[in-house]
Write a protein that binds this DNA or RNA. Structure first.
Lengths: 189, 189
DNA sequence: GTCTATAGGACGATAGAC
DNA sequence: GTCTATCGTCCTATAGAC
């Protein structure tokens, strides 16, 4: 799935640099230096800086799309599906925090593939929203504003990349459970 | 407080452009064009591109610091304080969504003032964390992982800028109340 | 697969006229 | 307060040697 090709090393390292400074502020010279080579040498492995960004963002976006489809095919209550979504985000963010940073902060720098990315994101959010609406209709979820519930959960889940790398003592199952408890049941006694 | 000086127009417009493309991707020529002047003319009003970023980010960061100090001086339960923090974020984000975007996504491009910004952020997070810890000790807040609670609330509150401008039908008091209900009491029935 | 050299353009910022 | 002109630097990407 992730062969140790030179191209893959470049993409992994680029994602790490993008996380720290953002796509626009990272130069091909920065990336080359971080890999111990010259900027011109990068072009033997990748087509352009833009192609690196596309690779990072779209592979993750497609992972989320596939994960959501699995969740929708499963039988299960709405709360159960929300817990599966939480687990999906924790899993992807813990495996590729740097890529998640690029997806969250640099998606607007996608050029040709911007529309494709936006369509994936839109579909994902619609599926997420429909799960919440179903839950309210079934009486599993409180009748609060749907958009506020969706926004609140998505904000937390999309920010996981900022936070997971610092908390290696908390394993991903514990984190997933703890997040479920807090997002679903709240914090007051 | 915000006189309609040319300098202020520049800063307001810069914040709007930074929100769309990020600090690094916005050029002084972009900014000048958006204001209907030439890039060189900007320098009669501002010292540098960097100075614009500092102005945007630090004025908001100091607003949060002052807001937190008021909350800490007030008598009140931990839950009450958390509700005041939610209100603080909604108020600032609704008044200056573009500036919040810069604070959230471009703080790392601060040069001389980076350490100052980080010290304000650190103090703010520590105060937030201590309110949660107090609440757990007093039995007002569930004994879940403190860092997960802090992260979850902060992630949602920090993302408000992305979302408030699109929801003008929801007034800020309604939004504040709805967010409180969801973040404090959860969503399950 | 990496290098040197460089094309061709955009960048932030300054000087000085009006 | 805005302009034109320009400086010196950095940018992505290509050409061609090794």
């Amino acid at each position: 799935m992730k062969p140790e090709t030179r191209k893959n090393e470049i993409i992994i390292k680029a994602a790490a640099l993008f996380k720290d400074k953002g796509y626009s502020a990272v130069t091909m010279r920065d990336l080359a230096t971080a890999l111990g080579i010259k900027a011109a040498s990068l072009y033997n492995h990748i087509d352009s800086k833009q192609a690196i960004l596309q690779d990072i963002i779209l592979s993750i976006a497609e992972e989320f799309t596939a994960g959501m489809e699995t969740i929708l095919q499963d039988e299960g209550s709405s709360i159960n599906r929300l817990n599966q979504i939480i687990q999906l985000h924790v899993t992807i963010a813990s495996r590729n925090a740097d890529g998640m940073a690029a997806l969250n902060t640099d998606w607007m720098h996608l050029e040709n593939k911007l529309d494709y990315y936006l369509s994936l994101r839109d579909t994902y959010e619609n599926n997420f929203r429909n799960i919440i609406i179903d839950g309210i209709e079934q009486g599993e979820i409180k009748d609060e504003n749907v958009e506020v519930i969706l926004f609140s959960m998505l904000s937390t889940l999309r920010s996981l990349y900022l936070w997971i790398p610092k908390k290696e003592d908390l394993n991903i199952d514990q984190l997933s459970d703890s997040l479920s408890a807090i997002l679903i049941s709240g914090i007051n006694t």
